[in-house]
Design a protein around this nucleic acid. Structure first.
Length: 576
RNA sequence: GGUCCCGUAGUGCAGUCUGGAGUGCACGCCGCCCUGUCAAGGCGGAGGUCGCGAGUUCAAAUCUCGUCGGGACCGCCA
């Protein structure tokens, strides 16, 4: 049907008779017998010089046969790959006529209401940006597949219909026709199956897996998303990180042409201390500064009883942050759990401009400026609270004040390791809550503290972070039934409950489970960042908006009574 | 479940604070002109439930309340 793509022709093709097929990107008329038609496909655009008696308009699908001719020097278009040639003596065949598109199919559509783009996604996809993004994603997919296969991982598909395991995210349920009143759940992740594959001796498993979670949507969250899911046997933390790292760096290199440096590691505790986040963005500094000793003798009530006092320095920020902005930051700090936020503007005479300046002694003022290496015009933001709150709130403030958009380079990967095994206390049971999940292996150095000081126990659990986005997480799993029982005990899960909730999962471990661990990371997120996008919707062909309603197909929709009857489902009247 | 922002022609906007006739701009669309343009140019034209519904008012795109839709974020996402 065609001899070349629309972006292929160059000077060396001059003289050839070629046939292109694609969409009319634009037509420019010049009188009765001359018009220029730009024909476009995914590869690019070629200009055809045609007789103006042919009626072709924007987005008509055409096939053009013509002779490749070198453009005269004054008509060469340098910003077009095919700008040195054009087609002459053209014959045009209209393959499909087209109505004018509802929005421009060039970069101007970047400003169009996303809902309009999604309603006509098939048109949006014709744009260079979307073509590039979906191809970036395809490159990511094929690269990580090769990376895993090349390391001896076996690709295994796990079921989409599985039992409901309501421990984690809210699930999508699927009613069973053959057993009315019973439900499958769509997988939040292949977690259970991949561990069973290890018991099954697959040794190294991976899957480019679709996962589904019925939780509210965000720029980095969809109901459905793709993960590189992997699990390996007879390994420790280093082995898992190394295997994952190869795939991620391969993908980045394949897309950008540059292989990132080896991914640094930081412990969870250090990440919280230094960046106030378990997904630190290492592209900028503004590290948290420890101030507790500075205020050890303080008479300032807000600080005297605090477990931890820390702060960040916004260099030269005093001028940028007026009262309104500071009040906004204070409100944000409170919304993240702080009791308040202290701001101090450093002045040239070594004093502070601040509502609370009078509560801070001269020696404390001097010590603060010394500790921060602060100079005239700097803005200091201080939080005093329990250690966790202080770190987390400052981490949020640090991001608000200093963080560039996620897609802006450079790419800064980081492993966050040694997560705590337990985080917080279940308000219902009074027991510790698992930080990752109940099957996460405690750090063997901390096993003796499991019962005596559980909150201090580290886990063999780790996250991969890129530019402040959590790409994924994983852990070494518990393969020893005795250790699993100890962890369940701390969680307040007795044997009867464990068997009821996890029986089908625990039973296999009685038959010889290898030590194993794994990881999973989000392909949508990785693709978005590598494509330079702020939202994963831009690297998904047919995403859903925040409401979860599909503007293109109208899903979800009502179904026939007969379908419901077959499933044994009767609808309640709509809630009012 | 919550906070904040947005909704005016096919698209992007101005107009809204301070009420006075759908007042307007750009792109696109339709027609005519145009033989070297390339986001072509010139002339002309069509195109509006100011998201929807109440309320206040002599008068509402504009003020108030409600509602629907969209976005960012918090909660949530083991």
């Amino acid at each position: 049907m065609r001899t070349h793509l629309c972006g292929e022709l160059r000077l060396e093709n001059v003289g050839q008779t070629v046939t292109l097929a694609g969409w009319v990107n634009r037509r420019r008329e010049h009188g009765e017998h001359l018009a220029f038609v730009d024909v476009r496909d995914h590869s690019g655009i070629t200009q055809a010089v045609v007789d103006n008696d042919v009626d072709v308009r924007s987005e008509y699908v055409v096939r053009i046969t013509g002779t490749v001719v070198a453009r005269t020097p004054e008509t060469v278009k340098t910003n077009l790959a095919t700008g040195e040639i054009e087609l002459h003596d053209c014959s045009i065949e209209v393959l499909s006529a087209a109505e004018p598109p509802p929005f421009p199919l060039d970069e101007r559509a970047d400003d169009v209401d996303e809902m309009v783009r999604l309603k006509h996604r098939y048109l949006d996809l014709r744009r260079e940006r979307m073509q590039r993004n979906l191809r970036v994603r395809s490159t990511v997919n094929s690269t990580i597949r090769n990376a895993m296969s090349g390391q001896g991982f076996v690709e295994v598909e796990t079921p989409m219909l599985m039992p409901s395991t309501p421990e984690g995210a809210r699930e999508f349920l699927v009613p069973s026709r053959q057993r009315p009143g019973n439900f499958y759940a769509l997988p939040q992740s292949p977690q259970l199956y991949k561990q069973l594959l290890m018991v099954g001796g697959l040794d190294r498993y991976f899957q480019i897996a679709r996962c589904l979670r019925d939780e509210d949507l965000r720029a980095d969250r969809q109901y459905e998303f793709m993960q590189l899911d992997m699990e390996m046997s007879f390994v420790d933390v280093d082995d898992v990180l190394a295997a994952v790292e190869i795939s991620v760096l391969d993908a980045a290199e394949a897309v950008t042409g540059v292989r990132p440096e080896a991914v640094p590691r930081i412990s969870w505790h250090e990440a919280m201390e230094t960046y106030g986040s378990d997904k630190p963005d290492l592209r900028f500094g503004m590290e948290l500064v420890e101030l507790t000793p500075v205020f050890s003798e303080t008479g300032f009530n807000a600080f005297s009883s605090a477990e931890a006092i820390k702060g960040i320095k916004v260099e030269g920020g005093a001028a940028d942050y007026g009262r309104n902005k500071l009040d906004g930051l204070t409100d944000e700090a409170k919304s993240f759990g702080a009791k308040g936020m202290v701001w101090l503007k450093v002045q040239g005479d070594g004093t502070f401009d601040s509502p609370v300046a009078k509560f801070i002694s001269e020696s404390e003022t001097a010590a603060l400026i010394e500790t921060f290496s602060a100079v005239d015009g700097d803005l200091l933001l201080l939080i005093a609270d329990d250690w966790m709150t202080t770190c987390e709130v400052l981490g949020e403030l640090r991001n608000r004040v200093g963080r560039p958009p996620v897609s802006e380079g450079p790419y800064k990967y980081v492993w966050v390791v040694d997560f705590p095994l337990f985080v917080g206390v279940d308000s219902a049971t009074g027991r510790p809550k698992p930080g990752h999940h109940a099957f996460c292996h405690p750090h063997t150095d901390d096993l003796d503290k499991l019962e005596s000081d559980p909150m201090a126990v580290r886990a063999w659990a780790y996250d991969l972070v890129l530019n402040g986005w959590e790409l994924g997480s994983g852990s070494i799993r518990i393969h020893e039934p005795d250790l699993q029982r100890r962890v369940f005990e701390i969680l307040g899960i007795d044997e009867e409950e464990a068997n009821r909730r996890f029986g089908f999962f625990l039973e296999p471990f009685k038959y010889g489970a290898p030590p194993h661990g794994g990881f999973a990371y989000g392909i949508d997120r990785l693709s978005a960042i590598l494509a330079g996008e702020e939202s994963i919707r831009e690297v998904i062909a047919f995403p859903k908006p925040q409401s979860g309603l599909d503007p293109l197909t109208g899903a979800p929709g009502e179904v026939d009574e007969s379908q419901l009857a077959e499933l044994g489902i009767r609808l309640l009247p709509p809630a009012t």
